[in-house]
């Protein structure tokens, strides 16, 4: 027990580079595996949390642009969404890494100020950028679908109340679109959370062996030749966090549906109906 506490102290924050520098090499205990894989989860939560947050705003802008009648707005949004929805995330990671590596190493001079670029090739920035763009494209498609499926009665009612333009958008269109889109958006968030495991398997190297949960699980499975311990551990972690995510999005769903008693059905994760 004490030994396990010591392990947690040594490896609990290993994914951030704190604590013991060397990973365990032999005599892998269960405690070591659970701790180290759990510490890798920090990265999964970091990527998913920030990507969902920033992607949400970008997705709204894209959905509006795609629904716009102005071709100068609509076409770029359509191309962006097609590019990111039409290609595998795995390839996007590779490609983004190759592009980011091409940036000049010394930094870019803008008006006499040197902007450093080397940090963009690191996973925490580069992979996050890819994930934001990716989830924005998928979510924009969901939001766009919701905008298309607004009941026309709602729009007519808003007009009858004398609402138009921004007021109508803010008070009728957007809340209703969010309400319609939310179950599908929950699925997208879960899928994004699961996709964060791809980061260290694609172009982005794990700097000083600071990887995510799957990186460490793979490390243990490679070292022990035993996939039956490490992978179930990481799977268990993901099931727990997915349930947490569903609960969190369920709260928002309840709030979006609060004017319709009984309408807020439990969100069921249906992985097949998206992407």
């Amino acid at each position: 027990m004490n030994q396990c506490l010591q392990t947690i102290q040594d490896y609990g924050l290993r994914a951030l580079g704190l604590g013991e520098r060397l990973l365990p090499r032999s005599e892998f205990t269960l405690c070591e595996q659970v701790t180290l894989i759990g510490s890798g989860l920090i990265w999964n939560v970091y990527f998913a949390g920030l990507a969902v947050f920033f992607g949400f705003f970008l997705a709204n802008a894209l959905a509006v642009a795609k629904a716009s009648r102005n071709g100068w707005l609509r076409k770029p949004a359509e191309w962006f969404i097609f590019l990111f929805r039409g290609s595998p995330l795995f390839i996007q990671f590779f490609l983004a890494y190759e592009i980011l590596v091409q940036l000049p190493r010394a930094g870019i001079d803008v008006l006499g100020i040197t902007i450093q670029t080397s940090w963009m090739t690191r996973a925490w920035a580069g992979a996050l950028l890819v994930l934001i763009l990716n989830t924005a494209a998928y979510s924009a498609e969901i939001f766009h679908g919701a905008l298309r499926n607004l009941p026309k009665g709602e729009l007519e009612a808003a007009e009858a109340y004398g609402m138009a333009g921004w007021t109508r958008w803010r008070r009728v269109v957007w809340p209703h679109a969010m309400r319609l889109a939310w179950p599908a958006y929950t699925n997208e968030a879960i899928f994004l959370f699961h996709a964060t495991t791809l980061v260290f398997f694609s172009g982005f190297p794990a700097f000083q062996q600071r990887g995510d949960a799957l990186y460490y699980a793979n490390y243990f499975a490679d070292k022990t030749f035993n996939p039956f311990v490490a992978y179930p551990i990481v799977a268990g972690y993901f099931v727990l966090l997915t349930l947490g995510l569903i609960a969190l999005f369920g709260l928002v769903n309840r709030r979006l549906n609060r004017h319709l008693p009984g309408a807020a059905k439990k969100i069921r994760y249906r992985p097949n109906l998206i992407r």
């Binding site: 799957l214 499975a221 799977a235 993901f238 994760y269």
Partner: peptide, 20 residues
């Protein structure tokens, strides 16, 4: 089983498990 767990975990797990 695929609902809560990333599919890449299965892609890593199933081949090794089958092989062994």
């Amino acid at each position: 089983m695929v609902r809560g767990v990333p599919d890449i975990i299965f892609f890593l797990f199933v081949p090794i498990a089958m092989d062994q």
